[in-house]
Amino acid sequence: MAEDETQISPPESLLRLIENLARFHREHEEYYSQAPLRQAGDLQARSRALKALADRWSVIDVNEQPSTIAFAGTEDLNAPGLTAESGILFMEGEGEPAEVQRLRREVALLADDLEQTGVWLTGAMARAWEMAGGLAAYPALADLLGERHRIIANDWQSAGLQVLVARLLRRALDLLARVDFAPAALRADLGGVRTAPSYLYAASELLDRAADLMTESATLVHDNERRWRVFRARVRALQST
């Protein structure tokens, strides 16, 4: 009889391990089902700022006689309402606005964080996939194997999205690096070939797509919440018997 029970239900040590994973990984994923949504919102705000500047720079006639007063706001380069929303302010006699520099730093930092997390999660899910296959030896968990593998598949797909988002963000930064945001250089471009708006539009579109994929990542992780609850409930029931 003891041998039959061993074949049906996992040993107590394995049940404790599974219960631990189900409890803490569920809590971990609760965070990662929300954080990407906030990050996506931040990316969309940055994208709107770039589009506002591109809209403005696509149609304005540059001021050929800019103000000689240092730190005065540039009448031609600043997009209406954008300074109040984003803090981006182009000033006479200055270089690239500090807010644009900060935007680029924050996007670069997010790209680094997402790539690091995505690479780690990809490796973790490869290991989890192998471990989950071993659970097939226990008939008491057979009806939950679909749930467990779906959790892993969702997380694996989320990991891939995070790595892709990092690539999109870095390419957006590459495009922004093509623009000299100093007022004098911008006026020279806008008075001639006018390429700055095109680069800003392209960068903003990449940020938009990155935000969309981050939302998808959060949705995938959120789909696991009920599956973790079901899995943990079965494990606890087996432990009690």
Rank of each mutant, 00 (worst) to 15 (best):
I18K: 02
D113G: 07
D113F: 12
A237Y: 08
D208Y: 07
R150M: 08
D4W: 15
R48S: 10
F181H: 06
L190W: 04
G123D: 05
R46A: 09
I151P: 07
R229K: 05
I60V: 15
T195W: 05
V163R: 06
F181T: 02
A40Q: 00
R209L: 13
D180I: 01
A49E: 07
S198A: 13
A233Y: 01
P197E: 02
H28L: 09
A203L: 05
E205V: 08
L207H: 02
L21D: 04
I60D: 07
Q34G: 09
L135Q: 06
N78I: 01
L144F: 08
L17D: 10
A218Y: 03
L15D: 00
S47L: 03
L173G: 10
A182W: 06
E99I: 02
L110H: 00
L238P: 13
S86R: 10
V62Q: 07
Q44C: 03
A136H: 09
T215K: 11
W156Q: 13
V163G: 00
R226L: 11
A84S: 12
M131G: 14
T122S: 15
F90V: 04
P183Y: 01
I8C: 13
L161E: 10
V221S: 08
L109C: 10
A108N: 04
A202H: 03
A126E: 14
F24W: 09
Q157N: 09
L15I: 01
I18R: 07
F90C: 04
S33H: 06
G87Q: 03
R38M: 11
R170E: 15
G73F: 11
L17W: 03
M214N: 04
R38K: 12
R234Y: 06
L186P: 02
A210G: 13
L175E: 15
P80E: 02
A196G: 08
E3H: 13
G134H: 12
L17V: 15
W57H: 03
F71D: 08
A124C: 07
S47F: 00
A188K: 14
N20Q: 11
E205G: 13
A2G: 15
T219E: 09
F181D: 04
A108F: 00
L206V: 01
K51Q: 14
L200D: 01
A84W: 02
A128C: 05
E19H: 00
R226I: 03
L53H: 02
I8R: 13
E12P: 04
T215E: 15
P197S: 04
A45L: 06
V230Y: 08
F181M: 06
L176A: 04
E64N: 04
D76R: 09
G134T: 10
Q7F: 13
E205T: 07
V179C: 03
E27R: 14
G133P: 12
L207G: 05
N20E: 12
D112T: 14
Q65A: 10
A166D: 05
W120I: 04
I151H: 08
L176Y: 05
L168T: 09
L200W: 00
I151M: 14
L238W: 04
Q239S: 07
S217H: 06
T215N: 10
